[in-house]
Amino acid sequence: MLEWYTMYMPISGVDIFWPGLVLIGFSVGCIGGFFGMGGAWMVTPGLNILGFPMAFAIGTDIAHIAGKSMISTFRHAKFGNVDYKLGLIMIVGTVIGIEIGAQIVMWLERLGQVGPVVRWAYIVLLALICIMVFYDYYKADKKKKAGDVGERGAEGITWYKTLHRIKIPPMVHFKTAGFTCSAWLPIMVSFLTGILAGFLGIGGGLIRMPALVYLIGCPTHIAVGTDLFEVMISGLYGTFTYGAKGRIEIYAVFVMLLGAAIGAQIGTVATKYAKGYGIRIAFGLAVLACMVSIILKQYKIDLAATVLILGAVGAICVYICGIMFSGAAKELREKKASSH
């Protein structure tokens, strides 16, 4: 059991293929930085497939999100576009939601069902992401063929107008975001996303962002900032509660954060040089591969699951790194040439 490629995880007591851990951390950073979305969806399944018990996978994922959101928060430091009032009100819902999500996980763990339940939940979630990505691509492709290049937001959906009519006190006016509604509306939205975040070990931005825009009626740029703020809060609280419940493998968090910090740089730099919409297809395929590997894991075909998920995220990382290095080399060359 003491081969060089395994690392003993002192808390969960499992031997882990550590290069896999580094690769997952690096990929999350890389893919997250490149596509501008969390990427946490691959961490919980990935850790589970590598051999962590499910509850540990969720807790470790949440802790790693907390660390990563601190990186981005510190870097951008201006939560410039945050409606703090909205953010603070949403903290209530987020924290209670996360706690409930974590309680559900612990309860399922006691029943011995946490693995299958969370895996199936992930399969559904990843299927949704997949559909979203491919539909997005399909739409963009059709638009391009029709010659319509104009950018138009989804102004059509105005559910929030109806929701703003629900007048349960206290009514609150959000100055930065520019609307008035019952405080319960953001609380409920953040509450539901909190449950999902605590249960699946994700940041929740995937759901919170659209909810902020379509259900609460937040302008998109405010929604982005406020969401970033909420991810940080949810990550930090999730870390605390999962830590107190004894379900965080702190060593794995270190290893992954290290990979993520480097990956995120490469990913964000690569966005500078990336062209075209084709990369979305690669992203969709990675999500699909991740989904399939969870199904494989569910049916105990462990080796295939490991190879598939590591191979898929590894391939997309190589692709992104390729974009970054060729682009950066070109930029540096040009800089040199112009300075002479």
């Binding site: 907390a66 660390g67 601190m70 509660t241 830590g243 107190a244 702190i250 910090a261 995120a264 730099v269």
Partner: peptide, 27 residues
């Protein structure tokens, strides 16, 4: 356990920021 939870929170936050600073310097 509670102390461990607190440690995890503080250390991950701290490590996140540290890595952010270091990678920024490198870039």
């Amino acid at each position: 356990p509670l102390w461990f939870g607190l440690e995890c929170t503080i250390i991950t936050a701290f490590m996140g920021v540290t890595l952010g600073v270091i990678t920024d310097q490198i870039m």
